[in-house]
Structure formats: C-alpha cells, structure tokens
Design a protein around this nucleic acid. Structure first.
Length: 418
DNA sequence: TCTGGGGTCCTAGGACCC
DNA sequence: TCTGGGGTCCTAGGACCC
C-alpha cells in the first residue's frame, strides 16, 4: 500500500488505430470511424484528426468542417473485440489482478509481480513493447499509487506514452492539471467550477469540501473533493454485477405512428429480453425514453409486481409507456427522434418464475397462465437463434424498412464492451 | 443543420409504512 | 385531538463514462 504499483493501460484512439493497422494507407492521416460529412456521429478519431479538434461523439458534418481532409471510414467492428482481447491477454501475463473497465482499457495491480518482472515502470514498458510488437497497436500506460492517479497519468501520457507518478511527486503532479482530467468531472461540472475560478486540481484541493459540495451536489462534490485531495481508496477488482440492460435506436425525425412505434419497440424489446434471458436474469422496472426534435427527451417507467424477461411482455409494457410519453406532448403528429427501452431492478434466474403470474392484457395485474406460453416461445426462439443465427427467427414485423443507423456489429460491441 | 449505443450513479418529490 | 420522524420504494430527470 506504499509504492506506485497500480497501472492504467489504455489503447490510443482504439477503433481508429485498428483501422490504420488494417489499412496502411490510412496511417499518419486524419481519419474518423463512423459518421460522414453529411451526418451521423464520429465514433472515434485518429490522433491526426484530433489535432484538428475532431473527437468521438461529434456530428460528422462538424468534424468535416473542422478538418476538410478528414477521411471517413465505416469501421470494421468485427475486428475490434478479438484485437482488444489479445491485448488483455498480454496484460494478464504479468498479473492476474487485471480489472478491465471497457473494451480498450484496464487497471492492473502489479504489487505481486515485481519479483518476476522488475519495478512497475519496467513492467509498463514491457507491456507497451509487447502490445506494439504482437498486436501492432499503440497503448499508453500510467503508473501510480492509486487508480485515480494512474488513470490521470495514462491520459497525460497519451499518445503512445508512459508516465510514472512516484508517491513523493503526487501533489506536484496533480496541482497544475485541469479539473476536467478527473474521473467524474464533465462539461457541466467543469463549467460550474470555472464560474467560481476553479480550473485546476490544485485549486479544487484548496477549496473547502463543503463549498465543493454546494457547487457540485453532495455526493459528486464529496467524491471530487476527496479525489482532489488525492484520497482514493479503490482497489483493483473484478467486474461488478449488471444493474440494467437496455437498447436504443435513433430514428432520424419521424412522426410517431402506431406502426413505427410498434416496429421499433418490438425490435428493442426483443434485444433487451434476449440478452436478459442469455444472462439468466430478469428485471422488474421497465423504462422507456422518447426523444423529440431538439434533443429534448422524456422518460416513463413502470415497476411490475414481478421480474420480466419475455419479449412480448416487455414489448407491451414498453408500448404503453411510450404512448404515455408521446400523448403528453402538445399537438398532433408528434415527431420523435429516438426510442429507448431499458430494464432495471435486475434479479437472477431464481426469480423468473414470478413473471408467469403476470396478466397478459395488463402486466400490472397478476393472474394468468399465458406467461408460461410466452416463456416457452422465447425459449424456442432463443434455441433456434443459438443454432442458426440471430436473424433466423423472430416476431418482428418485417413490413417496415430496417433503420440501419449503426451496424449490428457495433451494437454487439457496445453491448459487451469488456 | 441538431448527434450513437451501451452503461452507472445521484437527486428530489411523493407515497407509504411503522 | 390531526401531528413526529425515519426508512424504503417509485418515478422522472440529469451528469457522466467508454
């Protein structure tokens, strides 16, 4: 608990780097994965593109304006997971204490590995060399005494660098850095702090904790104050339990007709319910989000008496909730730009029985055996899909054109993400 | 000319219970 | 005679992260 033995390893511009690895003509050039100059969003930008201000999550047309030479590539999403997994295997070669926090980054605790591989800085250098030589990707590593410090160090190290924060240099390292580098300070918090003249981590550390709590709210303020004081007790650990499962689909801009809403929600509910069943889970609270033009969105949720994981039940509840939200809007021919379905209040398989008691017409009322039939249908569909693929069978009304805003491969990637 | 998809956690008011 | 206080659940919204 004394030395700098926590590593944060983070692949640089991961999706974009993979594209440059697979297509040498893209190397050294500004590229964007996803989106186009006309629309869509950029999922990842190469460092050459970042130099122009292009960033992930940015609308394609804005990225093209910032960087006229920007090359948009569609993204070969199937390639990403295996490459990231190979990197994680390399990390796992120096310690079993690897906490993967997304597809492309992980914390390592190497306190038990130094007798085999040398001091942490040497281990970090070894990992960077191996990832470059064996996978072909650049990876940055931060080394420090805590997770928070290691994470900040890896951000400072980017691109393709290594930064070691020795324990006696922590304060000097943190103080001049912008508060936005802290995990949990986004655009809103950064702006609120800036309004009070707080822009660096050092300034945040010198601000009394109760004042920070008034600025950022109780919980966030207390956490950020602690982090600024370099107080981070988190240990490297495995993944936690899943707390929600959801899916969403952007629609462009369309009038909310019954056919559209049903088509999209049955698709989303099928994805969510299928993933729940695959995990042997179910959940009691169903939430639907409807987004309207102008990025304004509304959510409606309902907690059922028992957990659900069947596609049809979830579809019906989602449909009722979506219309609640849409009906609350003024005017007729309401336009929507996105629908989302998520399930929370997740419980394990042992509770699945309860759904069988839900009433078919009103899921809030108990009292039917239809649930058993639905469960059996889903089990059959799951089994067919397991053998013949996801599109082999389904309930989905195929009449409407599919809305392919994003490839299914990307959805699958986002779904796993670790 | 308004921008993806997957998540986590927090806040705040109201209902309800003891 | 109509008022305390604490805890939990539900619902809606929002910030943030990858």
């Amino acid at each position: 608990m004394s030395g700098a033995t926590i590593l944060h390893a983070d692949l640089d511009a991961f999706y974009a780097s993979v594209e440059q690895l697979l297509d040498p003509t893209l190397r050294g050039r500004p590229i964007a994965v996803g989106g186009s100059a006309q629309g869509g969003v950029v999922l990842a930008a190469s460092y050459e593109a970042k130099a122009y201000g292009v960033a992930g999550g940015m609308p394609g047309w804005r990225a093209a304006r910032l960087c006229p030479a920007l090359r948009f590539v569609p993204g070969r999403f199937r390639e990403y997971q295996p490459l990231a997994d190979r990197v994680m295997e390399i990390l796992g070669d120096v310690t079993p204490a690897v906490e993967r926090i997304s597809i492309d980054e992980a914390f390592l605790d190497v306190s038990g590995s130094t007798h085999l591989f040398g001091p942490p800085a040497q281990i970090a250098a070894l990992l960077r060399r191996r990832v470059r030589a064996e996978v072909g990707l650049p990876i940055s590593v931060g080394v420090a005494r805590t997770k928070h410090l290691a994470k900040i160090a890896s951000q400072v190290a980017k691109p393709d660098g290594l930064v070691v924060v020795e324990p006696e240099r922590e304060r000097a390292f943190l103080d001049p850095l912008p508060v936005g580098l802290m995990w949990g300070v986004g655009p809103v918090a950064r702006e609120r702090l800036a309004e009070r003249g707080i822009t660096t981590i050092g300034e945040l550390a010198r601000t009394p904790s109760d004042a920070v709590e008034r600025i950022l709210g109780h919980a966030t303020g207390a956490r950020m104050s602690a982090l600024a004081h370099n107080d981070d007790p988190r240990r490297v650990a495995g993944a936690g339990r899943v707390r929600s499962v959801g899916a969403q689909s952007a629609l462009g801009r369309q009038v909310a007709t019954p056919a559209l809403v049903r088509e999209v929600l049955s698709h989303l509910a099928d994805r969510v319910a299928g993933r729940l069943r695959a995990k042997g889970r179910a959940g009691r609270t169903v939430t639907v989000r409807v987004r309207f033009p102008g990025m304004r969105s509304v959510t409606r949720s309902l907690t059922l008496p028992g957990p659900v994981a069947t596609t049809l039940t979830l579809t019906e509840v989602a449909e009722q909730l979506a219309w609640q939200a849409i009906r609350d809007q003024p005017g007729r021919d309401v336009e929507i730009t996105l629908l989302a379905v998520s399930v929370t209040g997740i419980v394990g398989q042992e509770a699945l029985q309860l759904e069988l008691a839900l009433h078919p017409d009103d899921p809030r009322r108990p009292g039917s055996e239809h649930g058993a039939a639905r469960w059996a249908v889903d089990r059959s569909v799951d089994a067919v899909r397991a053998r013949f693929g996801a599109h082999a069978v389904g309930y989905l009304p195929a009449a409407m054109p599919r809305l392919h805003t994003v490839p299914d491969e990307f959805r699958e990637l986002a779904e796993k993400d670790r």
